[in-house]
Write a protein that binds this DNA or RNA. Structure first.
Lengths: 132, 132, 132, 132
DNA sequence: GTGGTCTAGACCACA
DNA sequence: GTGGTCTAGACCACA
């Protein structure tokens, strides 16, 4: 759970995002129990109110469900996972393209820069499908 | 000057960013006068103080210089332009990669998704260097 | 916190200076919490925004650090103290010399006048190392 | 005429000060004609209004007198010179002492620091009356 | 309560 | 008109 306390993005939003990413990465699976908001608050060195707000937001978005007295659980909906993953990825792609367009970059430049970013010192001619 | 009033990112920061982008795009050139903070406030429907905060931040970052009573000008440093453009682009690349990695994407997937984002209906095989 | 409301030097700058002096004098120590900007505003009979501007300037100069919701603290860097003290003292010396040179004073005159300023009615011959 | 356009001290005040210093240094003598405010404005790259304000202030302080159609002249009062010189010097001394006291410096330290500032690499023991 | 952002608007020095 | 400072006060995220 990476949090940036100096970011203007509210911590509770960052938390929701981190949970989504953990889901997308497969580190959290449907049905998993997540720590109580008090526990999570201690782990993240964040005020319990803030965690609670994050949990409420996740519930509102249908990511989790709460069973009173038992805890909060990732919703047992396997399709959701795939959906979140592709939603977030596409949002990232869109944002990247917008940002680069805002800088006056054309598609080729974007692809080239991404490629270089992914393969820092690599020869960029060759067949990039074999690297990584 | 695109501003999102609902974003958690402060308006004054968005303004600094927009000026940087305009510079990167070549819409603003070194030595150009930018509107007075009061004028810009009217244009952007924002409080003059907010614009001033943005302008002061730009000054602090060395983007602009100010002649009291005369106005604020893009600093006459042509190298700055190129630097800002590449800085901002590289930041965007890095952020994109981080975000995608956070979602468990591997480099190939990132490149493929970007390619698809750039050429929505396009055949995705072939030699992408000749399209656009 | 001595403020001169008629000085052309902005209040917020005077405040930064006063904090630096308090540090140099040892009245503020690394790690100390300083009053919230609202509290300080009441104490100094100044608008909270003005105090905040001073605090932000101090942060920008690396004098303080801020924990959101917790307060603003003198940075915990003991070397900073000594550095500030000597920086400010040397700046004062330089300014004094410049000023006096601007008046056509030679070094000896400067030293003599300072000595007299420090020991108003004193015999100025003798060994000044034993006075004070 | 040294002017600092970024100083919070108004330019017209800086101008008055510079004239006083020139007087103290003997670069301007009683009875001397000083440039017209328009001329001076061009020389100093300052708005004529600003120079005029400086000249008015000097007149108000009894430094100069204006003969209509002839120009502005340093007042023909030789005692004034000496008075200004010692006034300004004493003000500088007082300010220096205050500043250093504000930093917690004791008189000896002030004298030593001034001495070192005046004789940068010099041996500080010996008889400083013979140096310079 | 604490810091951060923002609006609304006054007044000043300077061009 | 232009930038700079300041007051007054609202609202928000977070502790």
């Amino acid at each position: 759970m990476q949090l940036n306390f100096n970011s203007p993005i509210p911590i509770y939003m960052q938390m929701v995002d981190e949970v989504k990413k953990a889901l997308a990465r497969g580190e959290l699976a449907p049905g998993d129990k997540i720590p109580s908001h008090k526990e999570q608050a201690q782990i993240s060195k964040v005020n319990p109110n803030t965690v609670q707000k994050a949990y409420q937001e996740m519930e509102r978005e249908g990511l989790t469900e709460t069973l009173r007295g038992q805890g909060t659980f990732i919703k047992n909906d396997p399709t959701m996972l795939i959906q979140i993953r592709s939603e977030m990825a596409q949002a990232a792609v869109r944002q990247f393209i917008d940002e680069m367009q805002g800088l006056g970059m054309v598609p080729d430049e974007m692809e080239r820069m991404l490629h270089e970013g992914l393969h820092p010192k690599g020869k960029k001619g060759g067949n990039n499908r074999d690297e990584t």
